[in-house]
Design a protein around this nucleic acid. Sequence first.
DNA 1: CAACAGTCTACTGTTAACAATCGTACGACG
DNA 2: CGTCGTACGATTGTTAACAGTAGACTGTTG
Lengths: 236, 236
Amino acid sequence: MSKTPLSSQLQRRERRVLTDDVADSIREAILSGRLKGGDRLIEDDLAESLSVSRGPIRQAIFRLEQEGLVVHETHRGATVTQVSIEDAAEIYSLRQALERLAIRSACEKAQAEDLAPLEAILLLFQSIPRASITRRRVAELDIDFHDALFRAAHHARLYRTWETLRSQIFVFLLLRDGLPDDYLTSWYRDHSRLLELVRMRETALAEATIESHIGGAYKRLQEHMAQEEVLRIRAG
Amino acid sequence: MSKTPLSSQLQRRERRVLTDDVADSIREAILSGRLKGGDRLIEDDLAESLSVSRGPIRQAIFRLEQEGLVVHETHRGATVTQVSIEDAAEIYSLRQALERLAIRSACEKAQAEDLAPLEAILLLFQSIPRASITRRRVAELDIDFHDALFRAAHHARLYRTWETLRSQIFVFLLLRDGLPDDYLTSWYRDHSRLLELVRMRETALAEATIESHIGGAYKRLQEHMAQEEVLRIRAG
DNA sequence: CAACAGTCTACTGTTAACAATCGTACGACG
DNA sequence: CGTCGTACGATTGTTAACAGTAGACTGTTG
């Protein structure tokens, strides 16, 4: 038998509470598109459809407000956040600042075991046949990769800040529906490069690389949104 | 009479709700030192002493958890966060990343009226006789100055992130009790320099300056905490 | 006396009913 | 015709009572 005490092997699996489930449900509904920007979130309705009382619903709504998925006004209720092109600028500039700190911190602190998940995601990506890959799947892998990077930074406050941004980024990733072939190759190249730089602890270069990585993602998103705008105006 | 519609002059003054008052009370108690790190926050007790029911208390506690002033474990309750030297490293590195983005954004977007509050704080600082100035007063002015800078950045998400960090920084600012004379002069010099750089829209220089400004603040804090550590060990 | 099982208590999580507020519909008034 | 006052329905804010859990306490057993 191992000498290490049980307490260090088994960690208290944090108990889930109704609020957690409710928040997950609503978040999922927003991210899957079942709830669209501007939709009202009426506590009674949600309470009934989820079979819980309004207490947990309320808490979940306030939590989602912190995540930026929902806006809430006193005595007037909550609605799903509507994202605009200005929001994209905010989200991506903030993301850039956070990822820069994350990769620096990861370069300094990450152990081999912290980087394994990053490697795993890259392998998983390669193992998916190109024909069967969807925009949503890439978005998930992308978020997972960056999430693993933030974890590797071993920086609790940074990670919590990232958590509040994560869902909002996901919304934008899903906005785009095209999936050009060169995007898939550059996705892999960019991310494996980032991983390599962290492995080699090339802090300064890693910072610069991730800044331009996020900057590029924003630029493509911006072009895409401008394009959609044009189409929308022509159609309307 | 003015032609501009009333709606653009008068803005809905956001109604305060019990949760807001409760959160303010508890926050104030923590920042003033009446509640110390590790103290338990028992919902019933707080409810009684503030004469409200547990509902608003609960929400306030979760909000303060988001601000990092309180930690909360399911079914075990909330306690006041205990800050360590590692927390300082997290807080200041994150702060550095945020302030860098803030000053860049301010350089790009700030109007004259956004910078007036910064100027006012500097004037106020100078108007206070050196003898009557306290550590707490400087801390307040410091936070106010940086808060005004974040406002001038016109970046809602950045500001909200800063809000969650602000109280935690305040806690650290109050830890130090000495108030050397050269600190007061350098405080003024540093901050007026930052304001000047924003005015001149010297983005790159402003970024570098604020990075070293925050870095310096962290370094002094670190030395102070290490010093306290030594004293504590000798005494104990 | 160490390990264990049951009980008890203090607290948190949840619920449902009550109070206050917002937006709106509608009629009175100038 | 537009502005104001008012009553009403829908929805949020608040409360108090109920349910469930973690940790301490106690006695029991090998």
